[in-house]
Simulated scan of single mutants.
Amino acid sequence: MRDKIVAGNWKMNKNLEEALQLVNELKVANVDLTPKIIVIPSFPFINSIVNTLENSPIKVGAQNCSTQDSGAYTGEVSASMLKSVGAQYVVVGHSERRSYFNEQNEGLAEKVNQCLSNGLTPIYCCGELLEERESNNHFKIVESQINEGLFNLSESKMIDTVIAYEPVWAIGTGVTASPDQAQEMHAFIRALIAQKYNQQVADSISILYGGSCNPKNAKELFSLPDVDGGLIGGASLKSVDFMAIANSF
């Protein structure tokens, strides 16, 4: 049975006081929920949030990591550092990182390897721009991102990954992929994995939807056969909304 996951990517939001208030609200509300809950704050707050969530089933992730183990890379944060402060997941290749910081598939493959080598689970993001969908290149783009970012992994390492499909045209826009569009791409990604490895591997990997998922549309999206949860942006910044999404299972 694949993990059902609801992960909240806070992006560059919240100060420490606000972050701790939010996780305390989530900690109280998280009672016997079906999905695995992950909060993904900014780097400075990870350790404080890990400590606050001690004895809670809520997991903690980071929004990025370096391609390097250590060294003279001012401003970078390594996977081993994230592991040492209690992070368990790392978002790799979010569309904002690809767009604003020109991250490419080759470098993202290195980040995935860094995560796995340090006992962290990468949440590898893929997805197409609006013009790529409108030109009917969306499958080609996503296939390239998956192939170049993940398919260097062994079968055992591949099983330890999570994938998030995020149609870039639906992130922060209020526009959501239709259920048919979401299911079609999730099924396509799973078929790529089956073709590269085998069906058992494909069926074991959680594929999340990320793109303006909210309390109103989460239930329909999460009911799709190949959608295993969500990578949630803006709706993860309010505990009521985030838990409503988690309860959509």
Rank of each mutant, 00 (worst) to 15 (best):
R2P: 15
R2Q: 11
I5K: 11
N9C: 05
W10H: 03
M12C: 12
K14Y: 03
N15D: 15
E17S: 10
E17T: 12
L20A: 04
Q21Y: 06
V23C: 05
A29D: 01
N30L: 02
V31Y: 04
D32T: 02
D32L: 03
T34F: 00
T34V: 11
T34N: 01
K36T: 15
K36P: 08
I38Q: 13
I40Y: 07
P41M: 03
P41K: 04
S42P: 02
S48T: 06
S48M: 03
I49V: 04
I49K: 02
V50S: 05
N51P: 00
P57R: 14
I58D: 06
I58C: 04
K59Y: 07
G61A: 10
Q63Y: 04
Q63C: 04
S66V: 05
T67V: 07
Q68I: 01
Q68L: 05
T74C: 05
E76C: 03
S78K: 07
A79D: 12
A79G: 12
L82D: 06
S84V: 08
V85Q: 15
G86C: 13
G86W: 02
Q88L: 09
V92T: 02
G93E: 12
G93F: 06
S95F: 13
S95C: 14
R97Q: 15
R98Q: 14
Y100N: 15
N102P: 04
E110M: 08
Q114N: 09
Q114G: 01
S117W: 07
P122S: 08
C125A: 11
C126K: 06
E128S: 14
L130Q: 15
E131A: 15
R133I: 12
E134T: 14
N137L: 14
H138D: 15
F139T: 08
E143S: 09
Q145N: 10
L150H: 03
L153D: 06
S156K: 11
K157G: 04
M158E: 01
I159D: 09
I163P: 11
I163C: 13
A164S: 15
Y165I: 10
Y165V: 09
E166L: 14
P167K: 10
I171E: 12
G172A: 06
T173E: 11
G174Y: 07
T176F: 04
S178K: 13
Q181C: 14
M185P: 09
H186M: 10
A187V: 04
A191P: 00
A194M: 06
Q195T: 14
Y197I: 08
Q200P: 02
Q200K: 07
A202G: 09
S204Y: 06
S206N: 11
I207A: 12
L208T: 12
C213R: 01
K216T: 01
E220T: 14
S223L: 11
S223Y: 10
P225A: 13
D228T: 12
G230V: 03
L231K: 02
A235V: 01
L237Q: 04
K238E: 12
K238Y: 08
S239P: 04
S239T: 06
V240Q: 00
D241L: 05
M243W: 00
I245E: 00
N247S: 00
S248T: 01
F249E: 01
